[in-house]
Computed example of a mutant assay.
Amino acid sequence: MAPTVVRDGQFRLFFFSREELRIHVHVSHPDGEAKFWLTPQITLATSTGLSTQQLNEAKTVVLAHLEEIQNAWHHHFGP
């Protein structure tokens, strides 16, 4: 299960159920994907197929929707 949290432009932010406990979000784009850790700060964990510019845009989208992502995480996985 991979619930979509946010769609913003060409980016879809989601997470996988039962993947790992550390809060993070996956970002899908037509050109590739990335994974960002959200704590203790927003940090790129992995990426494939995205340019540096697209990664910067993805990070900006994550930052813009951080509270929404965190709320969705806690709602889905619990406190």
Rank of each mutant, 00 (worst) to 15 (best):
48 T>H: 10
50 L>R: 05
9 G>I: 06
53 Q>Y: 00
39 T>M: 11
4 T>H: 14
8 D>Q: 14
34 A>D: 06
49 G>S: 00
1 M>Y: 14
76 H>R: 13
48 T>V: 01
62 V>T: 00
59 K>F: 04
71 N>G: 05
40 P>F: 04
79 P>E: 02
26 H>N: 07
24 H>C: 06
26 H>R: 11
27 V>S: 02
62 V>C: 04
62 V>S: 01
2 A>H: 15
22 R>K: 13
56 N>R: 05
37 W>F: 10
66 L>P: 06
69 I>A: 05
9 G>C: 07
5 V>E: 03
11 F>V: 01
64 A>I: 00
49 G>C: 04
38 L>M: 10
9 G>P: 07
28 S>C: 02
18 R>Q: 10
22 R>S: 09
52 T>W: 00
21 L>K: 15
33 E>C: 02
76 H>W: 15
29 H>M: 01
36 F>Y: 10
67 E>P: 04
6 V>W: 12
47 S>K: 05
36 F>G: 01
44 L>N: 04
5 V>F: 14
39 T>G: 01
42 I>V: 14
45 A>E: 13
71 N>F: 08
60 T>G: 12
50 L>Y: 05
37 W>C: 01
68 E>N: 15
28 S>P: 08
40 P>G: 03
14 F>R: 12
19 E>D: 15
44 L>A: 00
63 L>K: 13
6 V>K: 10
45 A>S: 08
40 P>W: 02
23 I>C: 09
71 N>I: 04
62 V>F: 09
24 H>Y: 13
48 T>N: 00
73 W>Q: 01
